[in-house]
Design a protein around this nucleic acid. Structure first.
Lengths: 134, 134
DNA sequence: AACCATCTACGACGTTACGTAGTAGATGCT
DNA sequence: AGCATCTACTACGTAACGTCGTAGATGGTT
């Protein structure tokens, strides 16, 4: 682990749009399906969607599996996982982590702060269980 | 507030290098100073450094003030502030914040988790003081 | 005042990512 | 065999960024 510096470029607008469709879908989608879903938002050539999906796959953001002669794409990881990764990267870029975290926490809404406490709480429980078990 | 979607592009490599020098400096630096400081890391034309500094200024990442005929540049905000902003942006892109935070906390090191708790603790104290005062 | 070192302003070029799409050929169904 | 569909590959415009050069402004020195 710890390969360092590998900041995932933030997706382009179209790429994000496509990813959102994939994340929202209950199952892997074909190019055609994504294309159709985007129809009401944006008029794009079928091949445009294909290209984007393909590029996303090359970036490991989507995975694809055969379905007849077509490919079915799905997000490689959940949206929240990507968000968490980006948060990590951002934190790694800070010089003083403590300071960065303090500032981050300072920007967060009350609700988010509560969610953070909750998340940290779970971590604690986890650690305890492992302690007991280990 | 809440202008939404304004993801700050992650800096390019050179841009980051330059910002790091500015963040590390105790005071605003001239183009020449930055150029000299980078000398041991990378051989760049003086104007290259100037261009980068200028672009950073246009992006509001640096501020500049006159010093004789030269400009002195300094980071517009501390490194940790930028990191915190990026964390915020990342979080905003998540669908389910709770989930994103849980995952983020799950990736964080023990030390970082402790720092987070500490930061959240301060927040609490803050809230209490305000409560008493308000 | 003329001169020289230095700085800035601005333009330029190559590369890469991304939005966008066309063409050719593979593939599978009827 | 034929048609509809899908993929693969190529391509082009734009914008960001790395990288620099030239021209002209500026200020200190003689």
């Amino acid at each position: 682990m710890a390969s360092e510096e590998k900041a995932p470029r933030p997706l382009g607008d179209l790429e994000r749009l496509v990813m959102e469709r994939l994340w929202a879908a209950p199952a892997a989608l074909t190019v055609r399906e994504v294309h159709e879903q985007l129809a009401d938002t944006r008029e794009l050539a079928y091949t445009t969607v294909m290209t984007v999906l393909d590029r996303l796959a090359k970036k490991k953001l989507t995975e694809r599996e055969r379905d007849g002669k077509a490919w079915r794409y799905r997000a490689a990881s959940p949206r929240e996982e990507l968000a968490a990764d980006l948060m990590r990267d951002a934190l790694d870029r800070a010089g003083d982590r403590r300071e960065a975290l303090v500032r981050f926490v300072g920007q967060v809404s009350d609700e988010e702060a509560a969610l953070l406490r909750e998340a940290l709480g779970r971590l604690e429980d986890h650690a305890e269980s492992e302690e007991r078990a280990g």
